[in-house]
Computed example of a mutant assay.
Amino acid sequence: MSLNGELRPIQRYITSHDPITGKAIVIQAKPSSVDKRKDDAIRFNVPYTISSFPPDMNDDQDLKSHEHLMSSGKLGLVNPGGTVCRFVDFAPDTKQPLMHRTQSLDYGIVIEGCIDMILDSGEEYTLQRGDIAIQRGTMHAWRNSSKTDWARMVFVLHDSKELCVGGQVIGEDLGHGAVDVPPSRLS
């Protein structure tokens, strides 16, 4: 973390194979781009996605698919049929956390600071660096209660089958005043 409480930029390294020797090489090393949301209170950074599972890495098909999806501007929170790796930075003193649900199985790992996980049942838990939340299609929100420090989580979202609870299908719900992302699925 830097002196002013901001988090360091994320550097992305993508590996592949040297076509002659077959040895591992880095084919891209560059900063991962940041997308600022909600008046810079939330910052998204998507270093990689896959659009099929298992991914096809032959002829860099996975990389081409990722670059196409990112340039399309159509990535929602979830990538239907695939996965999304997303860093989310939360500004200090979050006032109104966004309650939302994705149709996905998510691993959310705190890597800097502390973050409150709030469930629609009213339950709240404070996660610290190294803690993980496994979100299974539930309504939840994240809040950074620190008055001075940013918090960072890394999420890996896996698309999931439709979820039925109590005989009702529940799907993505981006909440009121969402972070201006397109829906993950077209209805």
Rank of each mutant, 00 (worst) to 15 (best):
E124P: 01
Q128R: 14
L105S: 07
E112G: 03
L98C: 14
T94K: 04
G113D: 03
D120Q: 11
I109D: 02
I132D: 00
P97Y: 09
F90T: 02
H100D: 08
D120V: 13
I134E: 05
L98R: 10
G137Q: 10
F87M: 11
L98Q: 04
Q96G: 10
G137K: 05
R86V: 02
G130M: 02
V88R: 09
E124K: 14
Q135I: 01
Y125C: 05
D106H: 03
Q103H: 08
H100G: 03
E124L: 06
L98G: 10
L98S: 14
D89K: 01
D93N: 15
L127K: 01
T102L: 08
I109R: 02
Q96I: 10
L119K: 00
T126S: 06
Q96D: 15
Q128H: 15
R136H: 04
T102R: 13
F87G: 11
G130F: 08
K95G: 06
T126Y: 02
P97V: 00
E124M: 13
Y107H: 09
E124Y: 01
L105T: 15
L105I: 13
E124R: 14
A91G: 00
K95Y: 03
S121P: 00
C114R: 13
F90M: 09
C85H: 09
D89S: 05
C85E: 06
K95H: 11
I132T: 14
I109F: 07
P97D: 02
D106V: 02
I109P: 05
D131P: 01
D106A: 13
T94C: 12
M99N: 01
Q96T: 15
D120L: 07
E124F: 10
T94S: 11
H100Q: 06
T94Q: 06
I132S: 12
F87D: 07
D89Y: 10
I118G: 02
F87H: 15
S121F: 11
S121Y: 12
H100I: 08
Q128N: 14
G113S: 04
C85T: 14
A133D: 10
V88H: 08
Q103A: 12
D93E: 10
I109K: 10
D93M: 10
R86T: 03
Q135F: 07
